[in-house]
Design a protein around this nucleic acid. Structure first.
Lengths: 213, 213
DNA sequence: GAATTAATTGAACGTTCGTTTTATTATTGC
DNA sequence: GCAATAATAAAACGAACGTTCAATTAATTC
């Protein structure tokens, strides 16, 4: 046999990406074999090499597009002219919404970094650092303006990001909590953690009420 | 050749454990080969099977002992009769100190769960859940006593644990911050996050001063 | 409808993997 | 110092891995 009826390159490539994200998230990059991936797509292993030259290139593509998606989401969600408290709230909401919606891809991007070659690792880490830098900048602004009380900006940024990204470990859609509830609670915890002054707290409380409605 | 001069079973087994933790933390369980591990120990691959019947059993042993170590550390560090704020402070200090000291083992226990067979996975998760339950219990006590202001105990516990465990991602000994400084800052963030009342804050501030001294 | 291009199969390549078996040497106990 | 045991080496096993190649068929182009 050879080309099958109804076969379509674009559809196959999309199916490969989706199956790869799911399999790598569940079993890990090293544990997923190209044959296993091909079987999930409904194709022979050799067909995969029409779309991705190597297994590592496939992993890198998934990670790069995930990071670009995160950057674009924040570019779209960031408020143009807003005080640090509003900016921080937008950052938290965007981060949690994005990571819950793309749990599997996030898992891959966070857990499989060590399977990348050095220069590809550098590229992904650069994108990640740029994204984290946005948060540090917001925190610094807030600390200088006096709306936040923060001991160490860099350390607080790392703590917040790890706290927020952690939702993908335990969150399962359709269980006890809705996405809006999780977002609201994490927003509340974040504002307290950065010592947001009453003005920021007020805003957050209103936000909280709105989200639960 | 066969038995080598000066060979000693106990020393070899300890060397295997240490090398395995380091290699798995760096390259991942699947990516570490038994030959690579043996080479690191200075022995042939077959010799490993004198101490661990399979590769997975080796992984499981490392994880189980790490979790038991964490439990024992908390048993030893937990204050007998203390208010929730003091108990929480002890939990945070113990968690951060333990995880910084055993970064590699923590990495293994957190990242390689999917390489365990179902029943071994269950065993490790049970130990982890028991440990997390301690934190939830402290938070609940504090919320009921009124010393903490917490929206959702379970969610707060997860957020705190992920925030604290996250130190192993970026912390490198001997760099910008000392362990005591990191502990102090995380303690401060934790107390604010749980909305600890001024009494708890006071105590924490004193603690903070003590640790920096 | 013939020629060209796109998509895929099936088989194979060389390598590496975890593990087992057997033999061999060092150490220990008497 | 001799028997028993502990610790390892060396070689091999079959299976699985990522990847390549040639052949084959479907879709497209003119």
């Amino acid at each position: 046999m050879a080309r099958t009826t109804g076969s379509d390159g674009e559809r196959t490539e999309a199916a490969v990406r989706e199956a790869a994200v799911n399999l790598i998230a569940r079993y890990g990059y090293e544990a997923m074999s190209m044959r296993q991936l091909a079987a999930q797509v409904g194709v022979q292993a050799a067909a995969l090499y029409r779309y991705f030259p190597t297994k590592e290139e496939l992993l890198f593509t998934l990670m790069r597009e995930h990071m670009e998606g995160l950057r674009k989401a924040w570019e779209h969600a960031r408020p143009a002219d807003a005080d640090p408290a509003e900016q921080l709230a937008a950052y938290v909401r965007n981060h949690i919404a994005f990571h819950i919606e793309r749990r599997h891809a996030t898992h891959v991007s966070n857990m499989e970094l060590r399977s990348l070659s050095p220069d590809r690792l550098t590229q992904i880490l650069r994108m990640r650092t740029a994204y984290e830098k946005e948060l540090r900048s917001i925190l610094r602004d807030g600390a200088e303006t006096g709306v936040f009380r923060i001991e160490d900006t860099g350390l607080t940024a790392m703590a917040l990001i790890q706290m927020m990204t952690g939702v993908i470990v335990w969150f399962r859609p359709g269980e006890r909590l809705s996405v809006a509830e999780v977002m609201a609670t994490y927003l509340s915890m974040t504002m307290r953690l950065v010592g947001a002054t009453s003005a920021g707290e007020e805003r957050h409380v209103h936000e909280h009420a709105r989200l639960r409605a």
